[in-house]
Write a protein that binds this DNA or RNA. Structure first.
Lengths: 342, 342
DNA sequence: ACTGGCACTCGAAACTCGGGAGTGCCAACC
DNA sequence: GGTTGGCACTCCCGAGTTTCGAGTGCCAGT
């Protein structure tokens, strides 16, 4: 009972997965040798199937029906038996030009979601570039009324955060101007994660009498820097859920519910995803039980070395992994490129 | 064949609608007199039903089945036979306090969607307060690099728009400061719709040599003012679609598709919706054929006199109109209140 | 004008049943 | 020993059939 599966058994597994993904019906030994040209007889395939089932890679829904892959089967298929499909030049060009038409960060994200959903025909999820992973491009302090200040923070990813600060006394316009320039010299180019220390040193350069105001502003800025709760997410292609099959209540409902809960989605995408690396979570590998019949394909995007955020798709476990993974990877690359350019 | 429906026939129609909404099953004469205490016999009800069917208010799915209301039946029910249900004090308080916890405009919208979806158990749609209907609170011009300016526009509804302007020559900081103050004196408090003329007059006060730069900025601002394409929409509660019944392909899919198309949603909500007035579109009354089996309940929100934007829900035609309408109206009121306060 | 009675209709659910795809096993074969 | 053809067995699926009952329309009676 050793896990030695010879070459042909793996071929059989690959054929089963591909067939089942294409037809969504349990696949039997006869149809298998018909459709794929394995050079052996159905009987041989049956033996191999028995072995594969023994190892837990396939299963039969009921006695004397065809086999369908288990989560483990898909896992093996993804890890060993398939190569990520690259897109055709035409597709690449379409992606590139569609994304290039975006006018601002929001638009980039919106277009990305649309694109992913359309290409993969699955539900697409795109996380907005996270504040903490990017750097400060500009900080602006604006007096709206004598006692009301507006802080605007612009990050390297093009994201804009604004905060209102109310003060107890009327503020001095000169002080604000001074603060504005000092903040910018201290912060511009800094990583958001490093900004806290930079902010602290800025505070110290002010006269004690001005400290309360400065402190209030600094605190608010800090809040904006570290605001993890603001992690926004865009979802699209929910209409693709209709192709999930008929067991609506069990397959579709949990997914729809998960899509509403952005916290869950963030978990699904996974934090540790690096660009260039595709993460695939299959069925029960997902950290959310409602998604036991679905898989998640995700990857990071942003600069080459480090991910700004993650994007991915959610689909039934019986999806076309090579194509889907290829599409996700390609889209992530082009988005990264667009973001780097702007 | 006059459209004279006496009082009791209307009672019967009301009972049919209420029963069908509760059970989702065709309702017959016997069960009708059992459940509602009309003081007459089934036979009498049958006669009335025949009349109602003649007039087109109800129909039977097939011979010798119970009756279900037609779109016209629901229409009559909504217009004449029902009163909008008011929420309990507890519910009101819950709404109020939940919305009060919002920290900024985005948060208000997000919470509103959640709330609506939860209370009505339908799909909720909330349009972000439109730029064109609100007024200018503040305009800021920031130099990011010598040739790159950032325009920030803050509206009375708390929405922030930003635009980047690239210039051909290095810009003069004094000119920018001057422009900033003139823009603000000219625009602050102006309705966005009126801002165009105000902007034009500002341009004229500058020296011809500065005109190109000023013109570029003004143009971009104008774009931001009139940017209808930016009408954003938030959607929530899609999981409630699972309770639509079983004819998935026909009922749910088109709705999911519509939810992706924000253009369609905007049409659904309708532009002319005033606050305090509930718009109900039933079945085929909708401007989108995919939603023939769904109804839309929408209303405006914002100030009392004029709507900033619209919100509403989408649900099956056989929804509980009195409750739903009550919930939509209540939420709209409280959102208006919150927005007015902040 | 309302009611009780009655014959009729027709969909939904239960039931039956044969066909067929698929399996496991075994003996034979290369 | 791995591979193959044959064979008996299993059991899901779909078509056809039957039954059941809620509901209707109509009519005569009050």
């Amino acid at each position: 009972m050793v896990c030695v599966l010879d070459e042909r058994k793996l071929d059989v597994l690959r054929a089963i997965v591909e067939d089942y993904v294409a037809t969504h019906e349990p696949v039997g030994s006869k149809t298998l040798v018909d459709r794929h040209n394995l050079g052996v007889s159905p009987a041989t395939v049956r033996n191999d199937m028995a072995a594969l089932e023994e190892e837990g890679y396939i299963t039969q829904p009921h006695t004397s029906a065809g086999r369908i892959p288990t989560d483990a089967g898909y896992r093996l298929f993804v890890d060993k038996l398939s190569t990520v499909k690259t897109l055709s030049p035409a597709e690449k060009k379409a992606i590139s030009s569609f994304l290039a038409g975006a006018v601002d960060l929001d638009d980039v994200v919106r277009r990305t979601v649309r694109l992913l959903a359309q290409i993969t025909r699955q539900v697409a999820i795109v996380q907005y570039p996270t504040l903490t992973r990017s750097s400060v491009r500009h900080v602006e302090v604006v007096t709206m009324t004598p006692r009301r200040l507006l802080l605007v923070l612009i990050t390297s990813a093009g994201r804009v955060e604004q905060r209102i600060v109310e003060t107890h006394n009327d503020v001095d316009e000169h002080l604000i101007a001074d603060l504005r320039s000092r903040l910018n010299t201290a912060l511009t180019g800094q990583r958001l994660t490093d900004a806290a220390t930079a902010l602290a040193s800025v505070t110290e350069t002010f006269a004690p009498s001005d400290r309360p105001l400065v402190a209030a502003i600094v605190t608010t800025l800090l809040e904006a820097f570290t605001d993890e709760g603001e992690q926004r997410i865009a979802v699209g292609g929910a209409a693709n859920l209709t192709r999930y099959g008929d067991d609506f209540e069990r397959n579709v409902k949990p997914v729809l519910e998960a899509l509403e809960e952005h916290v869950i989605l963030l978990k699904l995408l996974g934090e540790a995803t690096h660009p260039q690396t595709l993460t695939v979570r299959i069925g029960h590998e997902n950290p959310y039980e409602g998604l036991a019949t679905t898989s998640v394909v995700a990857t990071g995007y942003g600069s080459k070395s480090e991910a700004l955020a993650t994007l991915g798709i959610v689909g039934p476990t019986h999806m076309d992994y090579p194509s889907t993974m290829g599409a996700v990877r390609a889209v992530a690359r082009y988005v990264s490129q667009i973001l780097a350019d702007s």
